[in-house]
Amino acid sequence: MPATNLAHLRRVLAVRGLTPASVIPDASGGRTEEACVRPARLVEGDSLAWRPVGAAEPWPDPLAFLDGIQRSELIAYAGAAPIVVGEIAAAVRERAGRRLTTVLTERRVIAIARPSALAAAGDALDGLESVALPEDEPPHPVRDLFNAARALDRARGSLELLVGDRFRRQSEGWLVVDGSLTESPGWAADPRMLGISKSHATLPFEGAELERYLRLPYGHRSSVYAPETRSLAPVRAWALRLWPWEGKDLFHGLVRIEVAPVNGSTEMADLLARRLLAERAPLSTPDPRWDRLLYGIHSVEQYLRAQVRGTA
């Protein structure tokens, strides 16, 4: 491949009306196998618009953040069937007086494998929860490992739901969740929950509207829309640009906000967007997703990583 001046090439493409890009921000693409467009329904205005949200506004106390983590390790094969041990954890950290403290935390260690592989392990896995992988096809190490990762994802999601529900039983405060609210009908209808997604594998528009959606300026939000969802938990959503993207990438600083339909009004969307803008600082560096990762969520992750690492 001949040496090419990429910087020059970017400038030339920009002159021709294209958007220069460098690298897709970490985790903004989500899982590539899930990348798709699911057209959404606009609920604010007739066409997708950019709305300036105004100056950042502090979120009143208390404000809680929920996140979960997972780690896994391949520990054995039973024949060709892999056995994976995974650890999942979820926690809520609540902010009061500018200081975050952990109010809820939950951890699990689970063994994931085909039932036959789990049986072969005998009592070696005693004390661990087990998740059985489907046995409708013959063992294939790569496919089984992929399935194990999906199972661990689901287990972590379930643990987050458990912790979120437990928090709601003990507090009426706002809870910011890392990810989508559509995983739970309860969350999707909760008037004091907010989901914030960093990944954009599933996009709500296509064509010119998608371009408009992705070129959202800093400090603006998109019109509120109702995303198409596979579950029965309708929510309202909008995009919010937390940091200027120009010169970086279309996804830089772009997050998708989900709230219960009751919070889908223009005024409420503006208010929540202003509050989220205030949460840009402090930066969650050195995490590579710092442009979309709120410090509160980052703090939960740090806490959980320290917990899980401490027992590794």
Binding site: P58, R95, R99, E279, R280, A281, P282, L283, T285, G296
Partner: peptide, 22 residues
Amino acid sequence: MHAVIGADGDPVAAGIEPTTRA
């Protein structure tokens, strides 16, 4: 530098960040 970026270069804003760092 990350503190400067987070506060948009304004020391006053740095003092009113909603969350204090760990």
